[in-house]
């Protein structure tokens, strides 16, 4: 007999998946607006952020209600804790999509320059991290979540490459000072996006394996923590 409570948990999971899909869509449009100078698309992303915020509030309220009324334990408790964490991360990724879209107009005359930077690859990998972290949540595959966590270093390295490239370009050509400053901010946004995807992946590992892997600086530390050292 399927209980009402289990339906409620399934509904919660589905809402998170829907929220993830919306945020993923926001990122896709934000990146396209930036690299293709699509001002209208950027505005759509900014306006649609209200939908992300609405979903964030609805999921928070649903978690609060389940915690108060059903007092979940064990795997159900972990799902609730992971859901609250993942929801917060997705809402912040949604904000980053807006941050990226907001720079579209300022960089609309520099798309060729933008495409020449490692930033584009950095963004692609960060987006894959977001996508895979959601996929790992949906499927319960902690190995995929592990892969997301290990990709964070790749994004950080590409961020450093972009930083060095842009500083060099700004030194050589002072017409690039203003767009360069925007790119420096974009590096920060994308690094944060990858960090949030990492946090989602850590939430999935907690849910599936009942292990806390956050605040571990590298893979060795994480392995030790999983072994209970």
């Amino acid at each position: 007999m399927e209980r009402h409570f289990e339906k409620e948990l399934e509904d919660l999971k589905q809402r998170l998946v829907d929220m993830g899909a919306l945020v993923d869509h926001q990122l896709e449009d934000a990146c396209e607006s930036l690299f293709s100078a699509k001002s209208d698309l950027a505005r759509t992303v900014i306006e649609r952020d209200g939908e992300v915020d609405t979903m964030d509030s609805a999921i928070d309220k649903q978690c609060q209600r389940i915690l108060a009324l059903a007092q979940p334990v064990a795997v159900d408790l972990r799902l609730l804790m992971a859901a609250l964490q993942i929801n917060t991360q997705l809402e912040r990724i949604g904000d980053i999509a807006v941050n990226i879209a907001e720079r579209t107009d300022a960089l609309s005359d520099f798309t060729t320059f933008l495409r020449s930077l490692p930033l584009q690859e950095m963004m692609q990998i960060a987006r894959i991290m977001v996508h895979d972290s959601l996929e790992s949540f949906m499927t319960g595959r902690s190995s995929l979540a592990e892969r997301v966590i290990s990709s964070d270093d790749v994004v950080d390295n590409l961020g450093r490459d972009t930083f060095e490239t842009i500083v060099r370009a700004m030194r050589n050509d002072n017409t690039l000072l203003e767009p360069g400053a925007h790119v420096l901010m974009l590096i920060h946004h994308v690094e944060r996006m990858a960090d949030h995807a990492t946090n989602v992946a850590e939430g999935v590992i907690f849910l599936v394996e009942a292990k806390l892997v956050k605040h571990t600086s590298n893979a060795t530390d994480r392995d030790n923590q999983r072994r209970g050292d």
């Binding site: 334990v73 064990a74 795997v75 408790l77 972990r78 009942a210």
Partner: peptide
């Protein structure tokens, strides 16, 4: 008990 009710 904390183990039984969080991750049995």
């Amino acid at each position: 008990t904390r183990k039984i009710f969080t991750s049995p």
